[in-house]
Design a protein around this nucleic acid. Sequence first.
DNA 1: GTCTATATCCCGATAGAC
DNA 2: GTCTATCGGGATATAGAC
Lengths: 206, 206
Amino acid sequence: MPNRRRKPYHHGDLRAALIDGAATLIAERGERRFSLAELSRSLGVTAAAPYRHFADRDELLAAVALRALQAFADALAAGSSESDPPEQKLAAMAAAYVRFAAGQPALFGLVFGLGVDTKQRYPELRQAYQNVEAMLEAGVAELCADDPDAAAPLGDAIEATAHGYAALLTDGPETPVPADIDRAAAQAGNATRALIQGRTALRPTD
Amino acid sequence: MPNRRRKPYHHGDLRAALIDGAATLIAERGERRFSLAELSRSLGVTAAAPYRHFADRDELLAAVALRALQAFADALAAGSSESDPPEQKLAAMAAAYVRFAAGQPALFGLVFGLGVDTKQRYPELRQAYQNVEAMLEAGVAELCADDPDAAAPLGDAIEATAHGYAALLTDGPETPVPADIDRAAAQAGNATRALIQGRTALRPTD
DNA sequence: GTCTATATCCCGATAGAC
DNA sequence: GTCTATCGGGATATAGAC
């Protein structure tokens, strides 16, 4: 093992520590009130040090968002069991979508608030996001095995509905209390079932 | 008319000019890249002048958001005609919701990105938002005249779905092109119809 | 009461030393 | 890979001119 002094000139793994610390600070205070300078101070390095590991603030944010997206995908997977019928699986994923947003509002907001330019600069972000979408699409494909053309609009609708409940809960004008979260998650699940039931209205030409 | 010199000591109506200019700058560059200092420069006043009219940056943003919410309500009203059947009215409002977000992404994002503290400091904001919600609720009440208990969950679901399409369009990982906007608006309308059709699944206890 | 002038503090970012 | 030094910009507070 390397010989660690009390004040090592080289930090052990600053890059990882920055991502960790940024995620914590952002979760606490929100991205707007997060600063690289404060993070550097809390890690015992100067404000210039992070720039050896990230080109700018946005690149660090992108790394945090990437990790948040992986946790998001895990939460969706954990919320639904593989053996459930597709309808139930989709409803459970929608509810898990809402619960993740409510549980990690700042990280959820970070993922979707990054700015178009940033998202396009880091293709891994798009990839990670598409992994999330693929989970929903898999459930929809299973459900629409007989009618593949209906799958895409239904998947979009379920995704939009889950996202809407989640976004209104975290960004809406009211501060959610636990009961609001439970209700929104349940409603997102119910709305998913309603969309599935009424899906004939989703056909492009109707 | 007042005698205006080249460099009048008092600005004509700085408060209104600040709201106007902030709305323009935010629409152009986004809220993140908007600064009070630059706005002040463009209006020919010093950076301290705005503080005679707004306590801080957030208070100016709140004023811009308030105005954006009024435009939002107008767009929803303009998108649906009073004489239409409620189902069609609701679908049209959902589509208008998406179109407004796509047409004014920065202002739409400002309204929902203000931070909980700010929203609670300015009750007019909550009021203006509730006016928007009331338009959707009125359509739902008309539709559910026979079954008033079904109204609230259906209204929430329609609002969430419209918001989800809108938010994913503006904050999602892809930059929307006109065709995306048309498709999303149409899908939001169709999803509204699907929710109405399948609304039995929305009942709390089911 | 409205604006200017000034001054402070924080932040993001860069250049060059070690 | 990190530090020191430094620049430019932005948000505010205060004091004073009008």
